[in-house]
Computed example of a mutant assay.
Amino acid sequence: MRARTERGASPRPVHLRPGAVALVAAGGALGTLARSGVTAAVGAGTAWPLATTVENLTGAAALGLLLGVLGRRTETPRVRAARLALGTGVLGGYTTYSALAVEVQRLAAGGEPLLGVAYGVVSVVAGVLAALAGVVVGGGRTGGRSPRDRDAADAPEAAP
């Protein structure tokens, strides 16, 4: 007989739970629609893939912000659902690092290898910095304490 966890739920990994998959799928659909809207608004422009750059950098910042905010909370089913729906789903569908790879190859094959390399390096470095800024803005600077340590430190002390 399989062991049960709280509330009778099976110990099935999150990525195999139908509800979690549905959250990611619904969020991904919304994120993809948002990316399409940004692409239409920004347009093609120059040789530099501006729409993809905007999508990836704003998505990285938003993901950092989300993780900064959620990282301050104890992992509960609601926090996990928010992380899956918004982080993995919406922002996973919104950002498009696969397009970045294709665009780097397109630039290099199209006679612009230095522009392709510059685009790839700038996108990745700026994406990491945008995510870090999002974490800081989201309050994710916790002095290295885990959520459990923060919860214990913030709890009122017991009277002697």
Rank of each mutant, 00 (worst) to 15 (best):
P11D: 09
R12E: 11
V14R: 06
P18N: 03
A20M: 14
A20D: 08
V21A: 09
L23E: 04
A25K: 01
G28T: 03
G28F: 14
L33W: 14
G37C: 09
G37K: 00
G37V: 04
A40L: 07
A40I: 00
G43L: 04
G43E: 01
A44Y: 03
G45P: 05
W48E: 00
A51Q: 04
G59E: 01
G59M: 08
A61S: 04
A61Y: 11
A62R: 01
L63A: 05
G64I: 13
L65P: 10
L66R: 02
R73K: 11
R78Q: 13
A81C: 11
A82D: 00
A85F: 15
A85C: 14
A85G: 15
G87E: 00
Y94R: 03
T95V: 13
T96G: 09
Y97C: 02
S98D: 04
L100Y: 14
V104Q: 07
R106E: 08
L107S: 05
A109H: 02
E112N: 07
P113I: 06
P113C: 08
L115D: 00
A118G: 11
A118S: 08
A118M: 06
V122S: 12
S123C: 06
V124F: 11
G127F: 07
G127V: 04
L129V: 05
A131K: 04
G138E: 05
R141Q: 05
T142Y: 15
R145E: 02
P147Q: 03
D149S: 09
R150P: 06
A153T: 02
A155C: 11
A155H: 11
P156G: 06
P160E: 10
